[in-house]
Amino acid sequence: MEEHIGKNFPEPTVETEAYWQGCSNHQLLIQQCRECGHYQFYPRIICTDCMSRDVEWVKASGRGNVKTYTIIHRAISQAYEKDTPYVVALIELDEGPMMMSNVIGCTPEAVKVGQEVMVTFEDWSDEISIPKFTLVDAD
């Protein structure tokens, strides 16, 4: 976990605490409205579809596809230098919401729009695990 020293660690809030606890348990949690069934990410206190306050945390499938991506060649700080080049992607989860994350476990050139991905977790500390994605089928 020392390899993550100096990186931008998330700071859980009241709205995101359950999400980060799920990540710590290697479960990708998203919110679902109990009134209209709408799934949403990032965490909010109301449903973005019907404005209900009756939202709950549910375990997502952890699968999705790459909507778009970029390859980062220049680290934002020395803490990220050894990670370059790396992929930052917009992932559309099978449940519908989009989330930004990294695609790991392959060369950056292997990532393509439309590819299916699956969540994995990087433990950055005892409290924080970061969801990242791997390609399901790299041709």
Rank of each mutant, 00 (worst) to 15 (best):
M1R: 09
M1I: 07
M1F: 08
M1N: 11
E2N: 13
E3F: 05
K7P: 10
N8H: 10
F9E: 14
P10R: 08
P10M: 10
P10E: 09
E11D: 13
V14R: 12
E17F: 00
Q21T: 11
G22R: 02
G22Q: 04
G22W: 01
G22L: 00
C23S: 13
S24L: 04
N25T: 08
H26S: 14
Q27L: 06
L28Y: 08
L28F: 13
Q31R: 01
Q32A: 12
Q32R: 15
C33L: 01
E35S: 14
C36D: 14
H38V: 09
H38A: 14
Q40T: 02
F41P: 09
Y42D: 12
P43F: 01
R44K: 12
I45T: 07
I46R: 07
T48E: 12
S52F: 08
D54I: 01
V55S: 08
E56S: 15
E56V: 15
V58G: 07
K59I: 09
K59W: 06
S61P: 09
G64R: 03
G64E: 08
V66I: 14
V66F: 10
T70H: 01
T70V: 12
I71D: 09
I72S: 13
I72R: 12
I72L: 15
I72N: 15
S77L: 11
S77V: 15
A79T: 08
Y80R: 05
Y80P: 05
E81R: 07
K82T: 05
T84W: 02
T84F: 01
Y86E: 13
V87R: 04
A89L: 07
A89W: 07
E92A: 08
E92H: 01
E92M: 04
L93A: 09
L93W: 06
L93V: 05
D94G: 02
E95K: 04
G96Y: 04
P97K: 13
P97I: 15
M100T: 07
M100G: 03
M100Y: 00
S101H: 12
V103I: 13
I104W: 01
G105V: 08
G105W: 07
P108N: 11
E109I: 02
A110R: 10
K112V: 01
K112Q: 11
K112E: 12
V113R: 08
G114I: 12
M118A: 15
V119K: 03
V119N: 02
W124C: 10
S125C: 14
E127L: 09
I128N: 06
I128Q: 04
F133T: 06
V136K: 12
D137F: 03
D139M: 06
